[in-house]
Amino acid sequence: MISVENLSKQYGATTVVDGVSMVIERNSITVIVGTSGSGKSTLLRMINRLIEPTRGRVLIDGHDTTGEPAHLLRRRIGYAIQGHGLFPHRTVAENIATVPRLLGWDEARIRARVEELLLVFQLDPGAYAGAFPHQLSGGQQQRVGVARALAAEPAVLLMDEPFGALDPIIRAKAQDDLLDIQRRFGTTIVLVTHDMDEAFRLGDHVAVMSHGRLLQYDRPAVLLTRPADPFVSRMTGVSDRAMRLLSLTTAGEAALPGVSEGPAVAAAASLREVLSELLWRGADSAVVMDADGTRRGYLTIAAILERGRPG
Protein backbone atom coordinates (compact mmCIF):
# COMPACT_ATOMS: atom_id res chain seq x y z
CA MET A 1 0.00 0.00 0.00
CA ILE A 2 1.31 3.45 -0.93
CA SER A 3 0.08 6.47 1.02
CA VAL A 4 0.69 9.84 -0.54
CA GLU A 5 0.17 12.49 2.12
CA ASN A 6 -0.32 16.14 1.21
CA LEU A 7 2.47 15.99 -1.38
CA SER A 8 3.58 19.26 -3.00
CA LYS A 9 6.38 20.34 -5.31
CA GLN A 10 7.34 23.92 -5.98
CA TYR A 11 9.96 25.30 -8.35
CA GLY A 12 10.47 28.87 -7.24
CA ALA A 13 7.07 30.49 -7.40
CA THR A 14 5.43 27.83 -9.58
CA THR A 15 3.61 24.99 -7.88
CA VAL A 16 3.80 21.86 -10.00
CA VAL A 17 2.08 19.49 -7.59
CA ASP A 18 -0.27 20.99 -5.05
CA GLY A 19 -1.19 19.11 -1.86
CA VAL A 20 -2.00 15.70 -3.36
CA SER A 21 -3.17 12.96 -0.99
CA MET A 22 -4.14 9.47 -2.13
CA VAL A 23 -3.97 5.88 -1.00
CA ILE A 24 -2.92 3.35 -3.62
CA GLU A 25 -4.10 -0.18 -2.88
CA ARG A 26 -1.81 -3.15 -2.96
CA ASN A 27 -1.98 -5.46 -6.00
CA SER A 28 -3.92 -3.01 -8.13
CA ILE A 29 -3.31 -0.80 -11.13
CA THR A 30 -3.71 2.91 -10.48
CA VAL A 31 -3.60 5.22 -13.46
CA ILE A 32 -2.80 8.92 -13.07
CA VAL A 33 -4.18 10.78 -16.04
CA GLY A 34 -3.98 14.43 -17.00
CA THR A 35 -2.96 16.87 -19.70
CA SER A 36 0.69 17.75 -20.19
CA GLY A 37 1.85 20.07 -17.42
CA SER A 38 -0.72 18.71 -15.00
CA GLY A 39 1.99 17.49 -12.63
CA LYS A 40 1.26 13.78 -13.11
CA SER A 41 4.83 12.80 -13.95
CA THR A 42 6.20 14.91 -11.11
CA LEU A 43 3.83 13.15 -8.71
CA LEU A 44 5.02 9.75 -9.96
CA ARG A 45 8.66 10.75 -9.71
CA MET A 46 8.20 11.89 -6.14
CA ILE A 47 7.15 8.35 -5.19
CA ASN A 48 10.62 6.97 -5.98
CA ARG A 49 12.27 10.27 -5.06
CA LEU A 50 13.68 11.05 -8.48
CA ILE A 51 12.20 14.39 -7.43
CA GLU A 52 12.27 15.36 -3.76
CA PRO A 53 8.95 16.82 -2.58
CA THR A 54 8.79 20.34 -1.21
CA ARG A 55 6.16 19.32 1.36
CA GLY A 56 4.35 16.15 2.37
CA ARG A 57 5.52 12.57 2.43
CA VAL A 58 5.08 9.17 0.84
CA LEU A 59 4.67 5.97 2.88
CA ILE A 60 5.15 2.54 1.34
CA ASP A 61 3.64 -0.18 3.56
CA GLY A 62 3.74 2.29 6.42
CA HIS A 63 7.42 3.23 6.04
CA ASP A 64 8.40 6.78 5.14
CA THR A 65 10.34 6.71 1.84
CA THR A 66 12.81 9.26 3.17
CA GLY A 67 13.99 6.68 5.70
CA GLU A 68 16.73 5.35 3.41
CA PRO A 69 19.06 6.74 0.71
CA ALA A 70 17.09 7.49 -2.47
CA HIS A 71 19.09 5.14 -4.71
CA LEU A 72 18.49 2.19 -2.34
CA LEU A 73 14.77 2.97 -2.28
CA ARG A 74 14.68 3.01 -6.09
CA ARG A 75 16.20 -0.47 -6.32
CA ARG A 76 13.09 -1.82 -4.56
CA ILE A 77 10.70 0.02 -6.89
CA GLY A 78 10.38 -0.84 -10.58
CA TYR A 79 10.51 2.08 -13.02
CA ALA A 80 9.63 2.02 -16.72
CA ILE A 81 9.47 5.10 -18.95
CA GLN A 82 8.40 6.18 -22.40
CA GLY A 83 10.98 5.28 -25.03
CA HIS A 84 12.18 2.48 -22.73
CA GLY A 85 15.60 4.05 -21.88
CA LEU A 86 17.43 0.79 -22.49
CA PHE A 87 21.23 0.97 -22.23
CA PRO A 88 22.36 0.86 -25.87
CA HIS A 89 25.77 -0.58 -25.00
CA ARG A 90 24.44 -3.58 -23.09
CA THR A 91 22.68 -6.73 -24.27
CA VAL A 92 19.05 -7.45 -23.50
CA ALA A 93 20.09 -9.88 -20.75
CA GLU A 94 22.51 -7.35 -19.22
CA ASN A 95 19.85 -4.67 -19.35
CA ILE A 96 17.36 -6.85 -17.52
CA ALA A 97 20.03 -7.87 -14.99
CA THR A 98 20.80 -4.24 -14.04
CA VAL A 99 18.97 -4.00 -10.72
CA PRO A 100 19.65 -7.60 -9.59
CA ARG A 101 23.37 -6.84 -10.15
CA LEU A 102 23.06 -3.62 -8.16
CA LEU A 103 21.46 -5.65 -5.40
CA GLY A 104 24.25 -8.23 -5.52
CA TRP A 105 22.27 -11.30 -6.53
CA ASP A 106 24.38 -14.32 -7.42
CA GLU A 107 24.86 -15.02 -11.13
CA ALA A 108 22.80 -18.23 -11.23
CA ARG A 109 19.80 -16.50 -9.73
CA ILE A 110 20.18 -13.57 -12.12
CA ARG A 111 20.39 -15.89 -15.11
CA ALA A 112 17.30 -17.78 -14.03
CA ARG A 113 15.35 -14.58 -13.48
CA VAL A 114 16.35 -13.11 -16.84
CA GLU A 115 15.27 -16.28 -18.60
CA GLU A 116 11.97 -16.36 -16.73
CA LEU A 117 11.20 -12.75 -17.64
CA LEU A 118 12.14 -13.19 -21.29
CA LEU A 119 9.71 -16.13 -21.49
CA VAL A 120 6.98 -14.18 -19.71
CA PHE A 121 7.43 -11.35 -22.22
CA GLN A 122 7.37 -13.78 -25.17
CA LEU A 123 10.99 -13.25 -26.14
CA ASP A 124 12.92 -16.43 -26.91
CA PRO A 125 15.95 -16.33 -24.56
CA GLY A 126 18.11 -18.13 -27.11
CA ALA A 127 17.47 -15.49 -29.74
CA TYR A 128 17.18 -12.35 -27.67
CA ALA A 129 19.28 -12.62 -24.49
CA GLY A 130 22.46 -11.69 -26.35
CA ALA A 131 20.85 -9.15 -28.69
CA PHE A 132 21.41 -5.42 -28.37
CA PRO A 133 18.47 -3.02 -27.96
CA HIS A 134 18.85 -1.48 -31.43
CA GLN A 135 18.34 -4.94 -32.97
CA LEU A 136 14.81 -5.20 -31.51
CA SER A 137 11.52 -3.80 -32.78
CA GLY A 138 9.84 -0.96 -30.92
CA GLY A 139 7.39 -3.31 -29.22
CA GLN A 140 10.17 -5.67 -28.17
CA GLN A 141 12.25 -2.81 -26.78
CA GLN A 142 9.27 -1.69 -24.74
CA ARG A 143 8.75 -5.20 -23.37
CA VAL A 144 12.41 -5.45 -22.41
CA GLY A 145 12.04 -2.08 -20.66
CA VAL A 146 9.18 -3.43 -18.55
CA ALA A 147 11.00 -6.72 -17.95
CA ARG A 148 14.02 -4.76 -16.73
CA ALA A 149 11.81 -2.79 -14.35
CA LEU A 150 10.39 -6.02 -12.93
CA ALA A 151 13.70 -7.88 -12.71
CA ALA A 152 14.30 -7.55 -8.98
CA GLU A 153 10.72 -8.61 -8.15
CA PRO A 154 9.65 -5.16 -6.94
CA ALA A 155 6.37 -4.94 -5.05
CA VAL A 156 5.71 -1.60 -6.73
CA LEU A 157 6.14 -0.69 -10.41
CA LEU A 158 6.01 2.93 -11.56
CA MET A 159 5.39 3.54 -15.25
CA ASP A 160 5.62 6.93 -16.97
CA GLU A 161 3.78 6.86 -20.32
CA PRO A 162 5.26 3.41 -20.97
CA PHE A 163 3.33 2.86 -24.20
CA GLY A 164 3.57 6.43 -25.51
CA ALA A 165 5.98 5.59 -28.32
CA LEU A 166 4.08 2.55 -29.68
CA ASP A 167 1.69 2.41 -32.61
CA PRO A 168 -1.97 1.62 -31.78
CA ILE A 169 -1.93 -2.12 -32.54
CA ILE A 170 1.26 -2.88 -30.65
CA ARG A 171 0.05 -0.61 -27.87
CA ALA A 172 -3.17 -2.61 -27.40
CA LYS A 173 -1.13 -5.81 -27.20
CA ALA A 174 1.27 -4.24 -24.69
CA GLN A 175 -1.67 -3.15 -22.54
CA ASP A 176 -3.11 -6.68 -22.53
CA ASP A 177 0.31 -8.05 -21.62
CA LEU A 178 0.57 -5.61 -18.73
CA LEU A 179 -2.76 -6.78 -17.33
CA ASP A 180 -1.53 -10.39 -17.54
CA ILE A 181 1.76 -9.51 -15.87
CA GLN A 182 -0.01 -7.68 -13.08
CA ARG A 183 -2.22 -10.72 -12.42
CA ARG A 184 0.74 -13.07 -12.54
CA PHE A 185 3.10 -11.19 -10.21
CA GLY A 186 0.53 -9.24 -8.18
CA THR A 187 2.64 -6.10 -8.56
CA THR A 188 1.20 -2.78 -7.40
CA ILE A 189 1.36 -0.63 -10.53
CA VAL A 190 1.14 3.16 -10.74
CA LEU A 191 0.98 4.31 -14.35
CA VAL A 192 0.95 7.82 -15.78
CA THR A 193 -0.71 8.58 -19.11
CA HIS A 194 -2.49 11.37 -20.98
CA ASP A 195 -4.68 8.85 -22.80
CA MET A 196 -8.10 8.42 -21.17
CA ASP A 197 -8.82 5.20 -23.12
CA GLU A 198 -5.64 3.71 -21.72
CA ALA A 199 -6.62 4.83 -18.22
CA PHE A 200 -10.04 3.19 -18.48
CA ARG A 201 -8.64 0.06 -20.02
CA LEU A 202 -5.93 -0.53 -17.43
CA GLY A 203 -6.92 1.23 -14.24
CA ASP A 204 -8.61 -0.35 -11.24
CA HIS A 205 -8.51 3.22 -10.00
CA VAL A 206 -8.03 6.37 -12.01
CA ALA A 207 -6.72 9.68 -10.66
CA VAL A 208 -7.41 12.79 -12.74
CA MET A 209 -4.98 15.68 -12.31
CA SER A 210 -5.00 19.23 -13.58
CA HIS A 211 -2.71 22.14 -12.75
CA GLY A 212 -0.99 20.18 -10.01
CA ARG A 213 -4.16 19.28 -8.16
CA LEU A 214 -5.84 15.91 -7.83
CA LEU A 215 -9.42 16.49 -9.05
CA GLN A 216 -10.88 13.02 -8.59
CA TYR A 217 -9.56 9.61 -7.62
CA ASP A 218 -11.98 6.72 -7.92
CA ARG A 219 -13.05 3.64 -9.85
CA PRO A 220 -13.45 4.32 -13.61
CA ALA A 221 -17.22 3.77 -13.55
CA VAL A 222 -17.61 6.40 -10.81
CA LEU A 223 -15.56 8.88 -12.83
CA LEU A 224 -18.00 8.39 -15.71
CA THR A 225 -21.21 8.42 -13.77
CA ARG A 226 -20.39 10.94 -11.06
CA PRO A 227 -17.62 13.27 -12.26
CA ALA A 228 -16.56 15.57 -9.42
CA ASP A 229 -15.66 18.45 -11.68
CA PRO A 230 -16.44 19.80 -15.18
CA PHE A 231 -12.80 19.14 -16.13
CA VAL A 232 -13.18 15.46 -15.20
CA SER A 233 -16.27 15.08 -17.35
CA ARG A 234 -14.49 16.82 -20.23
CA MET A 235 -11.53 14.46 -19.80
CA THR A 236 -13.73 11.36 -19.65
CA GLY A 237 -15.68 12.55 -22.69
CA VAL A 238 -19.35 13.49 -22.69
CA SER A 239 -20.27 12.32 -26.19
CA ASP A 240 -19.37 8.66 -25.76
CA ARG A 241 -19.53 8.18 -22.01
CA ALA A 242 -22.28 5.54 -22.31
CA MET A 243 -20.10 3.47 -24.60
CA ARG A 244 -17.13 3.97 -22.26
CA LEU A 245 -19.24 2.70 -19.38
CA LEU A 246 -20.13 -0.40 -21.39
CA SER A 247 -16.50 -1.04 -22.13
CA LEU A 248 -15.78 -1.32 -18.38
CA THR A 249 -17.93 -4.44 -17.92
CA THR A 250 -17.25 -7.84 -19.47
CA ALA A 251 -19.88 -10.10 -21.00
CA GLY A 252 -19.05 -12.69 -18.33
CA GLU A 253 -19.84 -10.27 -15.52
CA ALA A 254 -23.11 -9.13 -17.06
CA ALA A 255 -24.31 -12.51 -18.39
CA LEU A 256 -27.87 -13.48 -17.40
CA PRO A 257 -28.42 -17.08 -16.32
CA GLY A 258 -30.35 -19.17 -18.80
CA VAL A 259 -30.32 -20.14 -22.44
CA SER A 260 -30.92 -18.07 -25.55
CA GLU A 261 -30.50 -18.02 -29.31
CA GLY A 262 -27.88 -15.94 -31.09
CA PRO A 263 -24.17 -15.70 -31.87
CA ALA A 264 -21.61 -16.85 -29.33
CA VAL A 265 -19.45 -14.18 -27.63
CA ALA A 266 -16.47 -14.62 -25.31
CA ALA A 267 -16.96 -13.99 -21.60
CA ALA A 268 -13.86 -11.77 -21.65
CA ALA A 269 -15.29 -9.43 -24.32
CA SER A 270 -16.59 -6.07 -23.12
CA LEU A 271 -20.29 -5.18 -23.37
CA ARG A 272 -19.32 -2.53 -25.89
CA GLU A 273 -17.86 -5.19 -28.15
CA VAL A 274 -20.89 -7.49 -27.66
CA LEU A 275 -23.30 -4.64 -28.50
CA SER A 276 -21.36 -3.82 -31.62
CA GLU A 277 -21.38 -7.49 -32.65
CA LEU A 278 -25.16 -7.78 -32.15
CA LEU A 279 -25.87 -4.58 -34.12
CA TRP A 280 -23.63 -5.79 -36.92
CA ARG A 281 -25.35 -9.17 -37.13
CA GLY A 282 -28.86 -7.83 -36.62
CA ALA A 283 -29.39 -10.17 -33.67
CA ASP A 284 -31.20 -9.44 -30.40
CA SER A 285 -29.32 -11.75 -28.06
CA ALA A 286 -25.98 -13.52 -27.72
CA VAL A 287 -24.69 -16.64 -25.96
CA VAL A 288 -21.81 -15.95 -23.55
CA MET A 289 -19.15 -18.66 -23.68
CA ASP A 290 -16.26 -19.16 -21.27
CA ALA A 291 -12.77 -19.64 -22.63
CA ASP A 292 -13.04 -23.43 -22.07
CA GLY A 293 -16.18 -23.57 -24.25
CA THR A 294 -18.85 -23.93 -21.52
CA ARG A 295 -21.89 -21.69 -21.62
CA ARG A 296 -21.88 -18.88 -19.04
CA GLY A 297 -25.33 -17.49 -19.87
CA TYR A 298 -26.81 -15.03 -22.34
CA LEU A 299 -27.15 -11.30 -23.04
CA THR A 300 -29.81 -9.23 -24.77
CA ILE A 301 -29.51 -5.78 -26.31
CA ALA A 302 -31.96 -4.47 -23.74
CA ALA A 303 -29.89 -5.89 -20.89
CA ILE A 304 -26.76 -4.31 -22.32
CA LEU A 305 -28.40 -0.91 -22.77
CA GLU A 306 -29.54 -1.09 -19.16
CA ARG A 307 -25.85 -1.19 -18.17
CA GLY A 308 -25.01 1.89 -20.24
CA ARG A 309 -27.03 4.18 -17.96
CA PRO A 310 -25.60 5.80 -14.85
CA GLY A 311 -26.72 4.71 -11.39
Binding site: H71, R74, R76, I81, V99, R148
Partner: peptide, 18 residues
Protein backbone atom coordinates in the same frame (compact mmCIF):
# COMPACT_ATOMS: atom_id res chain seq x y z
CA UNK B 1 23.80 10.78 -23.54
CA UNK B 2 20.10 10.09 -24.26
CA UNK B 3 18.11 11.63 -21.37
CA UNK B 4 15.80 8.61 -21.14
CA UNK B 5 18.75 6.31 -20.59
CA UNK B 6 20.02 8.51 -17.76
CA UNK B 7 16.53 8.77 -16.31
CA UNK B 8 16.16 4.99 -16.42
CA UNK B 9 19.58 4.55 -14.77
CA UNK B 10 18.65 6.82 -11.86
CA UNK B 11 15.15 5.41 -11.70
CA UNK B 12 16.52 1.91 -11.22
CA UNK B 13 18.60 3.00 -8.28
CA UNK B 14 22.09 3.58 -9.65
CA UNK B 15 24.09 5.99 -7.53
CA UNK B 16 25.59 9.00 -9.30
CA UNK B 17 28.96 7.21 -9.39
CA UNK B 18 27.53 3.96 -10.76
Amino acid sequence: CPPQVLEAASGMGMSARQ
